[in-house]
């Protein structure tokens, strides 16, 4: 399993009710169902991912959250609401953050750090929008329309009175490295946040 999913797993309690927004092929929910007896739903729009979820026995619902939001879900129905690598691709990430915290007691969110040193240096040296393994698109076809840095995200949380319970900063292989925490906003590529109201 992907290393970031392993980190997320540690933050989810046994028997929890989980909503995975943008659940992909259902790997995380399937793993949590098998190992932590969680119940819940995954939201997805890709047809091949939906089929993979069904094959795994994951409750998958086709829902374009960027268009339809999450208003069809009731307040505080989930223990954890998870969103991996999708926040930066939404039209209104700030509204989504509020919505996710309306549905769940806690949210677990991962996104790429635009202030990673290689990204900074790419922009500085070439004067062009950075392209890397983590951000493989050109400016005109990228789905990542709201890229941010760790500092940006934390400022948004502060402004919205959202409390950060945990933050794990990793490299692009989702591995924790001792030196990253010396200067996370410069050395970390991906952050995994656990937040609550």
């Amino acid at each position: 399993m992907r290393a970031d999913l392993k980190i997320i797993e540690q933050w989810i309690k046994p028997n929890a009710r989980v909503l995975d927004v943008g659940c992909g092929d259902g790997t995380l929910l399937h793993h949590l169902q098998e190992n932590k007896q969680v119940s819940g739903y995954g939201l997805e729009i890709s047809s091949s991912n939906i089929t993979s979820c069904i094959e795994k026995g994951v409750n998958v619902l086709e829902q374009n959250v960027d268009k339809k939001g999450l208003s069809n879900f009731e307040d505080q129905r989930f223990d954890s609401v998870v969103m991996t690598q999708a926040l930066q691709a939404l039209r209104q990430p700030d509204v989504m953050l509020d919505e996710m915290l309306r549905l769940g007691k806690e949210c677990i969110i991962t996104f790429p750090n635009f202030a990673y040193w290689r990204t900074r240096s790419y922009l500085m040296r070439k004067g062009r929008m950075p392209i890397s393994k983590a951000l493989p698109y050109t400016w005109y076809n990228t789905p990542n329309i709201h890229l941010c840095t760790f500092k940006d995200f934390e400022a948004l949380c502060y402004q919205k009175n959202i409390h950060i319970l945990n933050r794990t900063v990793v490299d692009k292989e989702h591995q924790r490295r001792w030196f990253i925490n010396m200067w996370p906003n410069m050395l970390g590529e991906i952050a995994i946040y656990r937040v609550t109201r």
Binding site: V60, L61, N72
Partner: peptide, 18 residues
């Protein structure tokens, strides 16, 4: 989707696709 939303509220296992 109305049906699916009510199934979710009732806590039932459901897969939905359009």
């Amino acid at each position: 989707e109305i049906l699916v939303n009510e199934l979710v509220k009732a806590g039932k296992d459901v897969c939905y696709t359009e």
